[in-house]
Design a protein around this nucleic acid. Structure first.
Length: 260
DNA sequence: AATCAGCTCAACCGCCAGAGC
DNA sequence: AGCTCTGGCGGTTGAGCTGAT
């Protein structure tokens, strides 16, 4: 017996989301919180696959999302994390508040990958592509704007500890696939990296905006929603004035949306 | 102004793991 | 134990945008 498709393919809309669809989804999630995604499109009156709704929410509509390009610090962190975790974008994204796995994946593929290659660094292994490329293109790593702070050989050693296999043909084979190991704070000199890589970072709510926790918990959402990016997200829909959300009922929300 | 090439990123697809029955 | 369902993940695609010619 074959597996059922995640949704009825007939009558399911694809492609870019409209402002109206976004509004419906937001309204629904505000009222009911995140529940069974499969049921969301039906209940919210959307002709979309539940999966598509989840994706739209997590990658675009979620209030705690940052917008815009990754800054240098974030970019550096992504590189460091990628060296440890490989293409596990969701794990990497978990360490960058307000960023999605999709966003990081895209940024990696469009920006970082090219930068690394240009620098003579293999974006997969994080090792020099070849000695000549490095010496010709990046005679001094510290000169490039990314300002690598991590010795990749050191990183590899960190990640290899306990599982070393010197006969491995490719560097990645031994690389940190056991994240419980690799993500624990280690002997890195950089305390910031250590902190961000630690589990406690994710539990630390100090970067959140506590003002609206009660409001959002009421809707079953995470407490980090009160963020200017949320307004940006709504500005995308034409809802620039969203600061009054605390006291706004859904009719008012509809009115605001109607201005779009 | 028109065309083309390259780039960006939202969205889709297929697969997998875990939970529940 | 085995099956189904659901959520989540990573890879890929393609429409739209931008800059170069």
């Amino acid at each position: 017996m074959g597996r059922q498709p995640c949704c009825d393919k007939l009558g399911v809309k694809k492609g870019p989301w409209t402002a109206d669809e976004d509004k419906k989804l937001i309204n629904f999630l505000f009222i009911h919180g995140q529940c069974c995604w499969r049921a969301v499109p039906k209940l919210a009156g959307l002709r979309r696959c539940g999966k598509s709704c989840r994706l739209r929410w997590t990658n675009y509509l979620r209030p705690d999302l940052k917008r815009g390009l990754l800054n240098e610090a974030e970019e550096q962190l992504v590189i460091d994390l990628h060296a440890r975790l490989g293409n596990r974008w969701s794990k990497i994204a978990a360490r960058l508040p307000g960023r999605t796995d999709n966003e990081i994946k895209n940024h990696w593929n469009t920006h970082i990958k090219k930068k690394l290659i240009k620098m003579g660094i293999d974006p997969v292994t994080h090792k020099p592509l070849n000695k000549e490329a490095v010496t010709h293109e990046t005679p001094n790593h510290t000169n490039d704007h990314l300002n690598f702070s991590i010795d990749h050989e050191e990183l590899k050693k960190d990640c290899d500890h306990g599982t070393s296999n010197e006969n491995s043909s490719t560097p990645t084979e031994n690389w940190p696939i056991d994240e419980s190991q690799s993500l624990e704070p280690n002997n890195d000199d950089d305390p910031l990296i250590n902190y961000i890589l630690s589990e406690t970072f994710l539990d630390d709510t100090s970067w959140e905006f506590p003002a609206a926790r009660e409001v959002y918990s009421e809707f079953g959402l995470s407490s980090s929603e009160e963020n200017s990016s949320w307004l940006l997200g709504y500005q995308d829909l034409g809802h620039g004035d969203f600061g009054c959300f605390n006291s706004m009922d859904m009719n008012e929300l509809d009115n605001l949306a109607g201005k779009h």
